[in-house]
Simulated assay, not measured.
Amino acid sequence: MIELRHISKIFPTADGDFQALSDISLTIQDGDIFGIVGMSGAGKSTLVRCINLLERPTEGQVLMDGILETEDGGPVDLCSLSPAQLRQARRSISMIFQQFNLLMQRTCLNNICFPMEIAGVPRAEAKKRALEYLDIVGLPDKANAYPAQLSGGQKQRIAIARALASNPKVLLCDEATSALDPTTTRSILKLIQDINRRLGITAIIITHEMAVVESICTHVAILEKGRMVETGTVEEVFSNPKTEAGRRLVFPEGANIDKFPVAGVVRVVFNGGSSYEPLIASLAIDCGVKVNILGADTRNVNGKAFGSMLLGLPEDRNEAAKAMSYLRAQKDVTVEEVPDYHA
């Protein structure tokens, strides 16, 4: 388990102190894939660097259990460790980055061996384990290749294999897919999910993309201007974001599909019902009412529908009332009027 208690981080600048993080507390359970999401400048990368003390918090505690032996078997506060103890604890916390950070003069095999060399693992054992990790990330034929010979997705796979070399309990992923194309991103996210399931490693995903969170995360925390404004399971936050920051991330304006003259606009929010129920088609068939789809941002998370859709109601008042009554009667759907909509 990882527990952050009242974490704050202040950076001194020429213009005065800058508060990057303010009083952040959250708990991440063993085996979670936990997403930390927010817009650029929200403090996500600073927070993840505080977790492994690459940045030392100005205030607060970073508690982890199972990374060092303690007399009572309980968690340790990384902020209270000696430099030697912290180095030992960090062997259980690996990190992958947006720009891969591979050693260009080393082969892929030797990149993966590098953290084991530092830890004093015998070379023969390190090579054996590195080959196993190459197999886990799907690149057994790249042992003797150099990073310059690899695609971006392959480089990230090698970086993940290197991160696994220290046999970590926690994997920190700082915008690990931001430099990759959508297809490669999906494959890397699937790999992280497979590693989580196969090895039981807790993964913390730092991202500005809700699509990444919905793909693999079990829980999510939303940051805004250095503060944690919302946290919960992905289903809870996606179905009912409680803050304006959450709503902006979960319910963006959506893809504008067309512009029609409409009498009124409603937002239909999908709260985790089956993603296979054709709501708008059912409305037309069951009630004989046609509505215009003005914009949509919906997603399928494990077979459940989340997101929202903007609908233009028909000009006929009776038809509009019939549509509203039908929509409000649906399970796992919330309907709200949008009085200030402008096409």
Score class of each variant (00 low, 15 high):
I201P: 09
K322Q: 12
R162L: 03
F270L: 02
F238Q: 06
L26Y: 10
R247A: 09
K304W: 04
G43M: 09
V62E: 02
D258W: 14
R157M: 00
T298A: 06
A130Q: 11
V170I: 12
C108P: 10
L311S: 06
L189W: 05
E59V: 12
Y146M: 04
S80I: 00
S40N: 05
V62F: 07
R87C: 02
E117H: 02
I205Q: 03
S166A: 05
L109S: 07
E230H: 04
A161S: 04
F251A: 12
V137H: 07
A296L: 12
E117R: 00
L311P: 06
A255Y: 11
A163G: 10
I96Q: 01
E319P: 02
L134W: 03
Y276V: 13
N240I: 05
R317C: 02
R299K: 01
E337D: 14
E235A: 12
A119P: 06
F11L: 12
A124S: 14
A343Y: 04
N196R: 07
G200A: 06
V250A: 13
G138D: 09
A143S: 05
L131V: 14
L171D: 07
S22N: 08
E244N: 11
V229Y: 09
L150V: 00
T177K: 01
T184E: 06
G312P: 00
R5Q: 11
E71Q: 08
V291S: 11
M64Y: 15
K9E: 00
A284W: 05
L47W: 13
N292W: 03
E336T: 15
G43K: 04
T185C: 12
E235I: 07
C173K: 12
N318G: 02
T207N: 05
T334V: 07
A130N: 08
K128G: 14
V229A: 10
N101Y: 15
E230Q: 03
C50H: 06
R198P: 04
V250F: 10
P147R: 11
R90Y: 13
R248V: 01
K290L: 05
E125Q: 15
V229R: 08
V333S: 02
L283E: 04
F238S: 14
D135E: 14
I257A: 06
E235W: 00
V265D: 08
K142V: 01
S151T: 08
E336R: 14
Q105I: 12
F270A: 10
L81T: 09
I204F: 08
G120Q: 00
Q88L: 15
I28C: 03
R56Q: 14
L313C: 04
T183I: 13
L223N: 03
S80E: 06
L189A: 01
L283W: 11
I205G: 01
D258Q: 15
N256W: 09
M104A: 13
I280F: 13
A281L: 15
T218F: 14
H342Q: 11
K259I: 03
S92K: 15
F34L: 02
A89V: 13
T243N: 00
R267I: 15
T70G: 13
I51V: 02
A221T: 01
M1E: 10
R247M: 13
M228Q: 00
A221N: 10
L310I: 11
